[in-house]
Simulated assay, not measured.
Amino acid sequence: MSRLKELKSHLKRGTVYRRKHLDQWSKSVDRDLKVLINDGTLQKIAPGMYYYPSLSAFGPAPAKEEEVIKKYLDDSRFLLISPNLYNRLGVGTTQLYNTRIVYNNKRHGEVTFGNRKFSFQRKPRFPSKITTEFLAVDLVNNLDKLAEDSDLILEKLAEKLASLNMKSLKQSISSYGSVKAKRIFASLLRETDYEHGHRLSS
C-alpha cells in the first residue's frame, strides 16, 4: 500500500482533522495533504485543519460546527451561542446578528472556518447547555453590545422575571453574571419583589 493510500485508509467521512492527528499516518504529511486537497478528498477549513466531507443527495455536506470547534479547541467543553437567541426571551430584541460566539476555557479571538466566522471568548465558567435563565443573564452581560434600546430591554426583562425559574435564575446570575449584570439584576429583583408584595397587600 502506498503512503498516500495508507493515509486515506484512516480517513472517515464527516470527520474534521488537525494536521497533528494525520502525521502519524504519513512521513510526508504536508505533501500528502496538498495532494488530497487538490484531488478534492479533503477540504482545508482553516490553517492546520482539514475536513473529509460526508456525502448527501445534494453532494458533499458541510462540517458540523460542533465538530469543527471541538477539533480546534482540542476540547469538548464549550458553549456555542448566538445573540439571535435573545429574541426568544421576548424582551424587545429583534435584530439578527451574524456573530457565532464560543464560550470556552482555552482560546480568545475571531476565527473563520471556511465561510463561517466565530468569536471565541475565554470564560472561567459557562453552563453545559443554554437555558432561558442563562440567556437572560447573558443578555444583560452583553447589553452594551446590542443595537436595541437598553433601558427598554431592561424594562421588559423586569416584567419577564416572574415567569422564570427563580432558583435557576439566581444560580445563573451568581455563576455567570458580570459585576455589572449582578448589580442590574439585584435592582430588577428588588423591583419585582416590591411589585409582588404591593399586589399581595392591596
Rank of each mutant, 00 (worst) to 15 (best):
K160M: 01
Y72I: 07
N98L: 09
R122D: 13
Y86N: 01
L143C: 10
F185I: 09
A46E: 01
Q171Y: 05
I184L: 12
F185G: 03
S202M: 12
T131N: 06
R107S: 10
L164K: 03
K44D: 05
V137E: 02
L33M: 12
R31W: 08
E6N: 15
G14E: 04
G109M: 07
Q95N: 10
H198F: 09
L96S: 07
Y52T: 14
M166G: 12
S82V: 08
A181T: 06
K160A: 00
R116G: 02
L157W: 00
L157N: 00
S119D: 12
H21A: 15
H10L: 02
V179P: 13
A46I: 08
D75F: 05
L164T: 04
R13I: 14
K117E: 08
N104M: 01
L80H: 03
S26H: 11
Q24R: 13
R183I: 13
L200W: 08
H196T: 07
A158Q: 05
D149Q: 03
A57M: 10
N165E: 13
I184F: 10
N84H: 04
G109R: 03
K8S: 05
A57E: 08
K34G: 11
R122Q: 14
K106W: 08
Y72S: 05
E65L: 06
R107L: 09
I153C: 01
L4N: 04
E191N: 07
N141P: 10
L157K: 00
I81C: 01
Y51N: 02
S119I: 07
R107E: 10
L11K: 09
Q171T: 10
K123P: 09
K123V: 11
G92S: 03
K123N: 12
F113I: 11
V179H: 15
L55P: 06
H198C: 06
S187N: 15
H10D: 01
P127D: 05
F113T: 06
V35S: 13
M49C: 11
T132G: 09
S187R: 15
S150F: 11
E6G: 14
E195P: 07
K156R: 03
R190C: 04
V179T: 14
D151A: 12
S56C: 06
R107G: 05
